[in-house]
Structure formats: C-alpha cells, structure tokens
Amino acid sequence: MNQTLPQSRREWLLSDAPQTRRQARLGAIYQGWLTFRSNKLAMLGLIVLVLLIGMAILAPWLSPQSPFSQNLAGRLQPPSAAHWLGTDHLGRDILSRLIHGSRITLFIVGTVALIAPVIGLFIGTVAGFAGGWVDQVLMRITDIFLAFPKLILALAFVAALGPSIGNAVLALALTAWPPYARLARAETLTIRNADYIAAARLQGAGPMRLLIRHIWPLCISSLIVRVALDMAGIILSAAGLGFLGLGAQPPMPEWGAMISDGRTYILDFWWVAAMPGIAIFIVSMAFNLLGDGLRDVLDPKGGRQ
C-alpha cells in the first residue's frame, strides 16, 4: 500500500495526515521509536536486554559446558582460557551457569512484570473510578500490604508456600502490586473528571467501557515506565530470596543463589560471587536505562514537539 504513494517510507510514517488506520497506528509507533532512539543510554539498555533474551534462548548452544557437570578436581579455578569466568566450589563452569541462569532471571522478571502491574492496575483504577466505599476498602487493603517491608512479606509468603522458584515469583508479584495500585488510582482520579470522559458518558458509555477503553490506556503507559524502573528491584529481590535459599533450589543456576554459594569463598576466590553479581548489576542497570527512555516516549504529559 505504501509503494503506491510517491514518498519514502519515512515520510509515509511521519505523515500528519494518515490515510488509513494502519498508517496512523504505525506512524504513532514510529514517532515513539524516534524519540526512544534519540536517547543513547536507553538504546544501550535495550541492546543489553535484547542480548540477554538472545542469550536465554540460545543458552544450550552458547554455553561452553553443562551448567550442572561437576569437576571436583578443578574447583575454584580462577578465570582462564578453559573457564572464562572461572569455576565454582563444585568445579562447575561459571560462564555456563550464568548463561543458563539468564533463563531463570527472565522467567522471574517476566512473570512478576505480568502479574503485579495487572493486579495493581485493576485495583487502582477500580478504586479511583468507583470512589466511595469501594475506594476505601481497596485502598486500605493496599495500605496493609504497603505497611510491611516487601522482602519480609515475600519471605513470609515463601515460607508458608514452601521454597521454590515458582513460589518465589508468586510471592514477589503479590508484594509488588501495591505501589502500582496507588499510581493507577492517582492517575484515574485526574482522568476521571476530564471532559473526554464526560463526553463519552454522554454517548451512553457504561462504567466498564470507560474504565477499559478510556482510563486503562492512559494509566498503562505510566505503569510500564514504572515497571521497567522497578525491574532492577525485582531482580534484586529474587536474587535476595535465592541468596536466602528460599527461591531457586540447587543445583539451579539462579544468579542470587550463585552469589550465596560464593559467599564462603569471597575473600580468596572473589570471582565465584562477583561474576553473578556483575551480571545482576548489568541487567538491573539496563532495565533502569530502558525505563528512563520509555518515560520519554510514553509519558502523555510530556507532549511532543
């Protein structure tokens, strides 16, 4: 369809007068991409995360050795040509474990990022939109969750459910939603009285439609930004649970558990704890940079010049 028009694809995308629904939508996405691309650090974050995803997908082919094969004769070897990042206390290749661990990290991050904001969005917008006693009840529940330190609450959940990676994810998601609920409620309160909501109401739009079609799209963008910025915290919490032995169980190569394993040897064999630590640092940083970039793109108040 764009070939028929005497203009470049870029012009077609940036057109101020789109001719079709598809062109309008693609154009909006392209504008966002241009804004995002102009932020060098955010691009760096995106590249790191794309590499991480690639690494997780290709883990079995990328890793030089099995993450589980032990070699007690070659334990605690420093980084060398044979083991680029050294070996741990059971002689396992740390690089291979890190590469396989990226799958676990992505699983945790992905699941929490799916569950927590959705719960938060739902509770926050319903509370803000309905007002009255519904608001009171939902927000007091939120307050109860917020009153506990996140990690302690997650610990309590995992302790009750039994230590495993699935339960750790569930616990993290269940403790991470309250800030999203607050954010979504605050946004809803400002949107609720906007003229375009009144106008939709005058067309006979019911509360469900207003909530889903009109309020959610405006809340979601700020939630996405917030989630991206929180990701680092979630990775660290997951690592913390792993470190305490309540997350991934041995011999799973979860990064937090790997640090925990290396703890005993940290003074003499620093690389055992440092390598997974650096991995966590890089990924957390990448998410933070990505979040900053997304804020520029998605913030509806930012406006575009």
Binding site: R21, D195, Y196, L218
Partner: peptide, 16 residues
C-alpha cells in the same frame, strides 16, 4: 449532546 469548552481536554489523547 454537549460540546465542551476546551478542545484540548475534550478529546482522548490516545484515540484517533
């Protein structure tokens, strides 16, 4: 039906 004062506030920013 009604038409509102501020045309910048009466259209949903994400709806074409």
């Amino acid at each position: 039906q009604m038409v509102f004062q501020d045309p910048y506030a009466s259209l949903h920013p994400r709806h074409s």
